[in-house]
């Protein structure tokens, strides 16, 4: 999905302010709780890190910004838990209203319906029994595709040509793993792009490197 989470190169977000070195990771108690529940929601819902990220990406663009960082995490936890029928739709709203004194009915807990899936190993790194398709120094093009579901192929590199800089370990493919359609383990490559290739001849001079799964790439003839 081409979502608002894919922000590379977008303009008009303004300036960035550095925070003090001792700035704590959480500023409010609810942020601590949302953080912990979001991570626990993966196990509770029988999902994985890729579906976790997809549940962040697919929030409505207005919600994505309005909820803020840990607010998004909380909504993501709710989404994963609702999708797997661990909690009923509307259960959080009903409980919240009861907590503030309103007399509302709460939906009963549903019958869990977790995805029919189990990872073959912990984490994302996998062993594959074939050599990498591309070599360090080889010219490659990021495919100009628009996957309907989750992807980590950023819009700003699609169709652009770069050079393989490093071959990283083989890892599960987020695009299928997020949807429980298989791990599809494949090598990941750090691909280097010249800034002018990405942003045109007036771009600042620099090199952009990004880690891309093998199936995001095609050979340059």
């Amino acid at each position: 999905m081409d979502t608002v989470a894919d922000m590379g190169g977008m303009q008009n977000f303004g300036s960035v302010s550095l925070t003090p070195p001792d700035d704590p990771p959480f500023h409010e108690e609810w942020e601590r709780r949302a953080f912990a529940m979001a991570l626990l929601s993966m196990r509770l819902s029988g999902t994985n890190l890729n579906s976790f990220r997809h549940a962040l990406d697919r929030q409505h663009p207005i919600d994505y910004f309005a909820f803020g960082y840990y607010g998004r995490w909380l909504k993501m936890a709710e989404n994963l838990l609702t999708d797997s029928s661990i909690i009923a739709p509307g259960a959080v709203e009903a409980r919240a209203r009861r907590l503030r004194g309103e007399d509302v009915d709460e939906p009963p807990p549903p019958e869990p319906n977790k995805p029919d899936y189990a990872p073959t190993a912990a984490g994302s790194i996998r062993q594959v029994d074939h050599p990498p398709k591309f070599a360090v120094g080889e010219r490659v093009r990021a495919r100009d595709i628009h996957p309907p579901g989750h992807t980590r192929l950023t819009r700003y590199v699609r169709g652009r040509t770069g050079e393989v800089r490093m071959i990283q370990p083989a890892m599960v493919l987020p695009d299928t793993h997020a949807h429980f359609q298989g791990e599809n383990p494949q090598y990941v490559y750090a691909v280097a792009f010249d800034s002018a290739e990405l942003w045109g001849p007036d771009a600042e001079p620099f090199t952009l490197s990004i880690d891309l799964s093998e199936s995001y790439l095609e050979a340059v003839a």
């Binding site: 949302a34 529940m37 919600d63 309005a66 803020g68 909380l74 709710e78 909690i87 709203e93 919240a96």
Partner: peptide, 17 residues
Amino acid sequence: SDTDAERLPIALRTEAL
């Protein structure tokens, strides 16, 4: 979007979950 409905405070939503 959730924005179209009345927005519950996020701290309350967190406590509810």
